[in-house]
Write a protein that binds this DNA or RNA. Structure first.
Length: 261
DNA sequence: TTGCATGTTCCGGA
DNA sequence: GTCCGGAACATGCA
């Protein structure tokens, strides 16, 4: 699930239940997901220390505890689950942090992503790599500048975390569909009107998705129909098209989104 | 059994 | 140097 809206939901789970509380125990069920540390070192670093306010940048969560920060990435199948003591664990819970009153469980079926321990901003950067501004903090003039400095296809650009952090496959398709821009459209040939539409679609799509904690598969959304066989455009009824663009399955409406390179 | 999945990284080639 | 497509990573499901 995890794109920016999902990860923001995970961050809220962390804040609501665990922020300000002390770590009472650490259990590592899958050492491979603890990417740059060991269960012993993690326990020494955060055991008994208080979890402070966490931040999200793109699809990353940064959780400061004691003298270190935990970095969480959720890959394609990760999530946070808060559970009361004694509630049976899920088979894909890879890391569990126990607090008073409950446990934070880092679950991840496919084992992409993971958990890192970093001591400072430099280490954090070396783990996440260079990230553009968070997609939810991008302003109209930021987008204008980012587009001006980049060439190539619009979908590849929006998916690039170095340019804008947080957008994934579903979000980008949704944004392009709303803005009526073809996923392969050449960035340098996007009109001012299309760039405006892109920004508006970005804002609206993110606003609603963050509120819902996911890209909602709702009526009137591309995400609501894209996986149905014979899916049709919720706006005009044309049959939706699918193809690989920028390495991912893109879904678009051939009637609404015409701008071809 | 095969193909596909909401993510990232690495490689070769244009 | 940029950008793109493809493969790899790991696991489950239709």
């Amino acid at each position: 699930m995890p794109e920016l809206p999902d990860v923001e939901g995970f961050r809220r789970t962390l804040e609501r239940h665990a922020a300000g509380r002390s770590v009472r125990g650490v259990q590592v069920a899958d050492r491979a997901l603890l990417r740059n540390s060991t269960p012993q070192a993690l326990g020494r670093a955060i055991g008994g220390r208080r979890l402070r306010r966490s931040e999200r940048h793109g699809k990353w969560i940064v959780a400061p505890v004691g003298d270190v920060s935990l970095l969480f990435h959720f890959g394609m199948t990760g999530l946070f689950d808060w559970a009361e003591p004694g509630v049976e664990r899920h088979r894909h819970d890879r890391l569990v942090l126990a607090f008073s009153g409950g446990e934070l469980r880092y679950r991840n079926m496919r084992r992409f992503g993971g958990v890192w321990v970093v001591r400072d901003e430099g280490e954090r950067r070396s783990v996440t790599g260079p990230l553009g501004p968070d997609a939810n903090a991008v302003r109209r003039d930021d987008l204008e500048r980012l587009i001006a400095e980049r060439r190539g296809g619009v979908k590849a650009a929006l998916m690039d975390q170095r340019l804008i952090a947080g957008l994934g496959n579903l979000l980008v398709d949704e944004i392009l569909w709303r803005a009526r821009v073809h996923p392969r459209a050449d960035l340098r040939r996007l009109s001012r009107a299309k760039r405006d539409a892109l920004y508006e679609a970005l804002r609206q799509t993110l606003r609603t998705s963050i509120r819902r904690g996911r890209v909602p598969p709702a009526r009137g959304w591309l995400t609501g129909v894209r996986d149905e066989p014979g899916a049709r455009c919720p706006r005009c009824g044309a049959g939706l098209r699918k193809a690989t663009v920028a390495g991912r399955t893109a879904c678009w409406c051939p009637r609404c989104q015409r701008a071809r390179p």
